[in-house]
């Protein structure tokens, strides 16, 4: 797997109300096979940053290097999982969805279906290979989305609050499952979230972002052995620490929202 370097990345949104900074001078590195969570309140630019890394948005300044190569657009070295359950193609079965990237790559039908089955087994959906997305629960759909993003074997997995729309119990299951998948695949993962416990549970390091403009406030390594116990004292200490860093930013966000109505808070 490959390391990622984020160098002086800045992006400004042009809105009818004038220029709004999305992210400003963001700098950090991610090691190969590292799991990094980007944590911050709504509107802090964390999703914007992920979209830049995914290649959906071009930064106004700075650059992203993946395995030493500059990002110029989207590419199959990265797999992306979004928050929205609707990301799956409703006209394709779970297997068809997972095989999509391989199909685009030109992998023969037999082979891509074998790989897709294997990926669905990895997310424990081997029984739902032939199901259409609308027959699957939200958690299952997100698991298909993860399998789909992994199927064409990208070196980096980008995840934009994939479990934020799930109920709390399902979310816990999903987090455990994702930790297992990551342990097996050793992808470099960038995971955007506003959920502090989720960040502590999943991440090797947590990048804390604050809004207006979106900047990195600090990077905190989580030095807990895996699998992690969310009820342990150390786990809670990390949560407290992160919350302390976030406290200020959150208040500011709400103030800003009130002042500007619906500001362009692309950061989910």
């Amino acid at each position: 797997m490959v390391p990622i370097e984020i160098r002086d990345v800045t992006l400004v949104y042009d809105t009818p109300g004038g220029k709004v900074p999305g992210v400003k001078d963001v700098n950090f590195n991610i090691d190969a096979s590292e799991f990094v969570c980007i944590l911050g309140p709504s509107g802090c630019g964390k999703s914007t940053l992920l979209n830049i890394i995914a290649g959906f948005l071009a930064p106004a300044a700075g650059e992203i290097l993946i395995g030493g190569k500059a990002v110029t657009g989207h590419g199959m070295d990265r797999g992306v999982v979004f928050q929205d359950f609707a990301q799956l193609f409703p006209w394709r079965t779970a297997l068809g969805n997972v095989a999509f990237g391989l199909e685009m790559k030109g992998v023969p039908k037999q082979e891509r279906e074998t790989i897709a089955r294997e990926q669905l087994r990895l997310v424990k959906l081997e029984k739902f290979v032939a199901s259409y997305p609308h027959h699957l629960s939200g958690g299952m759909q997100q698991r298909v989305a993860i399998a789909r993003a992994l199927a064409y074997n990208p070196s980096v997995l980008l995840m934009d609050e994939p479990f934020a729309a799930l109920d709390a119990l399902t979310r816990d299951d999903m987090q455990r499952l994702l930790a297992d998948v990551w342990r097996e695949t050793r992808k470099t993962v960038i995971y955007v979230t506003h959920n502090v416990a989720e960040a502590v549970y999943l991440a090797d390091r947590v990048v804390v972002m604050t809004p207006h403009p979106g900047t990195v406030k600090m990077v905190i390594p989580i030095k807990l052995t895996r699998p992690r116990d969310p009820l342990s004292v150390e786990f809670l200490d990390y949560q407290k620490e992160l919350l302390a860093h976030l406290g200020h930013g959150t208040a500011e966000t709400q103030e800003h929202k009130k002042a500007n109505g619906k500001a362009p808070t692309t950061g989910g």
């Binding site: 959906f56 989207h74 590419g75 990265r78 797999g79 609707a86 990301q87 999509f100 685009m104």
Partner: peptide, 17 residues
């Protein structure tokens, strides 16, 4: 849906497909 286009783009779909 925009998200279908984005997903397909990320998975390497060219214009024709």
């Amino acid at each position: 849906k925009e998200i279908w286009l984005r997903s397909a783009q990320a998975m390497g779909a060219d214009d024709r497909r």
